[in-house]
Design a protein around this nucleic acid. Structure first.
Lengths: 212, 212, 212, 212
DNA sequence: GATGAATGAGCCTTCATTCAT
DNA sequence: AATGAATGAAGGCTCATTCAT
C-alpha cells in the first residue's frame, strides 16, 4: 500500500515535471516550435518517459489546456454558486480569469494561440471544456438580465466570447509591455484588473444599474 | 516598355497567386503546418518560383500580414481624416475592421494566431504595423475624451488593445458557428457588426454621450 | 520440497504463458513487429518477469522454435524407430508434419518466416535442430533407395528440403484460404493431408514401387 | 524535349539506384532490419531523395516485389503462349523461375520471407500479382490434365502453390550451402535446375506420360 | 520473485532550402 | 524566369532493456 502510493506519487511527480516543462517550452515559441527533446531536457528526464506518460506531444499539450481550463471551470462554478448577484458573479469571474492569466502568462499565451488557431486539432474533450467555460459566463449574463443589471438587448453568447477574448488579449498585451513600469508589479496588476472589470461593467450594465 | 510592363504584370500575378495560395493553406491548419510544397501546389506553380519571388516561407507569410494590416491602416487613416467626430470615427473603424475579418476569415484567423503567439518571430516591420493600427484607434479614443464622448478615466492604450482583441475573437467565433443560422448571411453579418459597435459604444462612451 | 515444486510449477506456468503469448503475438505480424510490451500484456504479466525468465526477446522467440522443432524431432525419431519401411516412415512423417502445422498455424507461420529469412540471427542451437529435422527425412529417403522404393537418382539432401518447403507453404496457403469451404474442417484437413502425401509419394517413388 | 528526357532519365536512374540498394540491404537482414539510412548510404544519395521518389520505406520494398513478380508474370505469359504442350510450358516455367531466383538470391530471399510472413501488409496490388503468378502455373496444370500428361486426380490450385514453395525453398537452401562445391557454379546450377524439373515432373506426370 | 517507471539509441518521415539545368 | 530533383537537419515516436523498490 505504501509502496503503491510511493510509486504513484513518484510517477505523478514525473508527470507534473513534464507538464510544467512543456508549458514553459511552449510559452517560449508556441506549440509548433516546442520540441519533445527540449521539453524532456527542461524536465530533466529522458525522452522515453514522455511517451511512457503521454501518448503524444499533442496529448501533453492538451493535458495542460484541459487542466488549466478545468481549474477555471471549478472556480467559476464556485463563484456562480456563492455570488449574491449576477454583477458580483461576473465581477468575480473576470477578476479571477484575469488574475490567473496574469500570474500564468505561459498558460495564457498558449490558451490564446490555440483557442483560435485555424484547424486546431484538439479533441472533443477540449472543445467541451471551452464550451463549459463560456456557458458559465453566459449563465451569469442571462441571470443579470433577469435581475435587471445587464442590458436586456445584449446577446449573452456573443458577450461571453467577447469577454474571454478581451480579457485574454489585454492581459497578454499588458504582460508583454515591459520597461515603462510605474509602481510595483502588484499595484500594476491591481490597476489592470480594475480596468478590465470597469470595461466589462460599462459594456454590459444596464443604464439603471450604472446609475446606481 | 511594353515588355517591361508585361513582365512586371506577370511577376505580380505569380506573386499574387502565391500569396493567395499561402493564405488559403495557412488558414487550413495554421502557419506551422503550412508547407511550401502545398502552397506551390495550390498556387499551381513550381517550387523554384516561390523562392524566386520570396526569400523564405516566413517572408511569404509576413507579406500577407503586412499587406492586410497595411490596407487596414490606410482605411483607418482615411476614416480618421474624414470623420466629423471621434464617435463617428471609432464606429466606422470598428465596423470596417469587423467587416474585413468577416469577409476574409482566413486572414482573420492567421492574424489572431500570430498576433499573440508566444515568441513570434515576425520582423520589426510587422511590429511597427501593429503599433500603427493600435495608435490610430488610440488617437480617436483620446480625441473622444477631448470631445467629451469617451469616458475620461479610460486608458486609451488598454482600450485599443481590448477593442482589437474583442473584435477579432468574436468575429472568428461567429464565423465558426455554422448550422444554426437565422436569416441570410448578409443579415447576420449586419446584426453581428451592429452588436460589436454597440458593445464598443457602451464600453467607452461617457454617460452624457450615451444619454444623448 | 513441496515449496520447491510449487515454485518450479509456478515458474513453469509463467514461462508457458509467456511463450504462448509470444507465439500469438508473433503470429499476428511476425517477429519484428511483435513487441515485448504486447507479449506481456497478452500473457497478463508484468514486463519485469519476461526478463526474469528470458534474457531477451530473441530468446523467447527462439525458445518457441526450438521447442516446436524439438517436438517434431522426437516424433520423427519415434516414427523412424517404429516404421517397418521407408515408405511407411516417410508417409507418417509427412502426415505428422502437416498435421502439426495445420493445427498450429501460428507456429507454422513463424517457422516459415524465420527459416528462410535473410540474415536470421538464431543461434547455433537453432540451426542444429533444423539440420536434425532434415537429416531424419533424409535418412528415410536413403533407406527408401536401399529398399528400392525411392528413385535411386534422387538427391536425398535436396529432396528433404523440398519436402519441408512444400509441406509448409501449401499448409499455410490452405489455412489462409477461408470462405470457400467444402465439408467440415476435419474432412478438409484429411483431404489436404492426403494430397500432400500423394504428392510426395509420386515425387519420390520409384516406378516399380508405384506400380505395386 | 531533350531536357525533359534528360531529367526523366536522371530521376529514373536515381530511382533505380534506390531500388537496387534497397534490395541489397533487405537481402542482408530482411525487411524489418533494413533501414532507410543504410539504403540511401548504399545508393549513394541523400536521405531526402528516398522520400522524394517513394512515399515510404514499405513502398520501396513493395516496388521491388511488384517489379520482380511482374517480370516473372510477363515471362510466364510468353511461355504459356509459345509452349507446344503443358509439359513443355511447365518445364520452361519452373526452369525460368528457378533460374531467376538462383541468379537473384536477394530477391528470392525477400520474396520467400514476405510471401508467407504473418500479417504482411503489402497492398492489394501485391496480392493480385501473387495470384496471377499462381494462376499461370495452375492453367498449365489444367491444360496438362486435358492433354493427358498431368495426373487427373491432382488439385491444380494446391499443386501450383506446392511448386512455388518447393522451388523457392530448395533454391535458397542451395544458394545457402557454400563451401562443399563440386564443379563450376554454372554446372551446379544446371544440375540443380534439372533436379527441380525432374522432381516436378515426377510429382505431376501421369503414369502413361512418365512411361513415354 | 515481481513490478513498472525510466532509459536512450535509433527509426521513419517531414520539410525549408538549394541548385544544376 | 522557371523547373523539380536533391539535400540534410531535425522532429516525433518506438521499443528492447535496465533497475530501484
Amino acid at each position: 500500500m505504501t509502496q503503491r502510493k510511493t510509486r504513484t506519487t513518484k510517477a505523478d511527480a514525473t508527470r507534473r515535471q513534464l507538464l510544467d516543462a512543456a508549458l514553459a517550452v511552449i510559452a517560449e515559441r508556441g506549440y509548433a516550435e516546442a520540441t519533445v527533446d527540449r521539453i524532456v531536457e527542461v524536465a530533466g528526464v529522458s525522452k522515453g518517459v514522455a511517451y511512457y506518460h503521454f501518448p503524444s506531444k499533442a496529448a501533453i499539450a492538451e493535458s495542460i489546456l484541459v487542466d488549466g481550463i478545468g481549474d477555471l471551470i471549478v472556480s467559476f462554478e464556485r463563484v456562480a454558486a456563492e455570488a449574491v448577484s449576477a454583477t458580483a458573479a461576473l465581477t468575480a469571474m473576470i477578476e479571477l480569469f484575469a488574475a490567473v492569466i496574469f500570474e500564468n502568462a505561459a498558460f495564457g499565451r498558449f490558451f490564446v494561440a490555440e483557442l483560435w488557431r485555424p484547424g486546431r486539432a484538439w479533441s472533443a474533450v477540449m472543445r467541451g471544456y471551452e464550451q463549459r467555460l463560456l456557458a458559465l459566463l453566459q449563465a451569469q449574463l442571462v441571470r443579470g438580465q433577469r435581475e435587471g443589471t445587464v442590458r436586456p438587448e445584449l446577446d449573452a453568447a456573443f458577450e461571453s466570447v467577447a469577454l474571454v477574448g478581451m480579457v485574454l488579449t489585454t492581459t497578454l498585451y499588458y504582460i508583454g509591455e515591459e520597461g515603462e513600469a510605474h509602481g510595483t508589479l502588484d499595484e500594476r496588476r491591481q490597476l489592470f484588473i480594475a480596468r478590465i472589470v470597469d470595461f466589462v461593467h460599462h459594456a454590459n450594465a444596464s443604464a439603471g444599474m450604472r446609475a446606481g
